[in-house]
Write a protein that binds this DNA or RNA. Structure first.
Lengths: 150, 150
DNA sequence: CTCCCCCCTGGAGCGCGCTCCAGGGCAAAC
DNA sequence: GTTTGCCCTGGAGCGCGCTCCAGGGGGGAG
């Protein structure tokens, strides 16, 4: 999982003709291939603009949208759900529906955070177990070393 | 990702002959197939005991070990890393090495938690945006709706 | 004895999310 | 003019972590 945004790039830094796909990829911390993949999969609000040569050009609105996608992906939303959300956002006047999707996702993320924290606590117990030297003092790797989560 | 442990099952509840793979799977919240897969992949401290008929039998030590695996998987440690850790734990007298693996994993989990929290904050900003009705008041799905993370 | 259920093995299959490749184009730099 | 570098498309390939299947067996209930 690449880190979020390499260069925050305020809108005014975007040249008039937009960014190439390579530049956009660098900005939002994704690969060129991934950007094209997302477009194919319908995760972009609109297909990217094209230069006369046929090359994609990215503008502030595209980068903003992509930042949202990165955020949803980064919290584990599957591609198909992001596609569904994108389709909702393409239609107007359904703010309640968008809100519902986001709130539901928020719940899942909270649960996931919670579970990770519980597992982390168990790992830390185990670490303590080794730090205090209890691990060195007990023979089997097995009966003694485990069950830090109890 | 299935939840952790369905029945905590204290050691004294385990019948003398051990649990079948189906029972063990239920206890640790994994599927029977996954348990066999983990064994094949070398994630078990020792291969499971077998009944005379050839069926696997699980005892407290196995369930303890598996609880540890669930915890590592549940915090995103890849199978191959768990295998490496398992191999370390099969040898004796390398508590420092085990500790190092666990501490490194802890660091990664903390980073991951942090990133998730940042993304979550962005999602919550966006939720607020819709809750306050700002979403309904601005025309495009695009320029207005996004960039909650700024 | 017959059912039925769970177990066994080896191996194939799958869903996900990319990632890479072949074959080709445009255009700025040398 | 040619080299370089990034871009294009369609489609194949891949690593991961399971999950399922065929074909077969044991063993307790009725």
């Amino acid at each position: 999982m690449a880190s979020v945004v390499h260069r925050p790039m305020p809108d005014e830094e975007i040249p008039n003709g937009g960014l190439t796909i390579g530049e956009a990829a660098a900005v939002c911390g994704l690969s060129v291939d991934t950007l094209r993949y997302y477009e194919r999969e319908g995760l972009t609000a609109l297909p990217a603009d094209r230069a006369p040569s046929g090359q994609r050009r990215y503008f502030a609105r595209d980068l903003n949208w992509l930042a949202g996608i990165v955020m949803l992906r980064g919290t584990g939303m599957p591609i198909r759900d992001i596609r569904a959300y994108t389709e909702i956002c393409r239609r107007e006047g359904n703010e309640a529906e968008r809100l519902a999707v986001l709130e539901q996702h928020r719940e899942r993320v909270l649960e996931q955070l919670d579970e990770t924290r519980r597992h982390l606590a168990a790992i830390e117990k185990k670490i303590d177990f080794y730090r205090t030297g209890a691990g060195a003092r007990s023979p089997e790797p097995y009966t003694s070393e485990q069950r830090a989560d109890r």
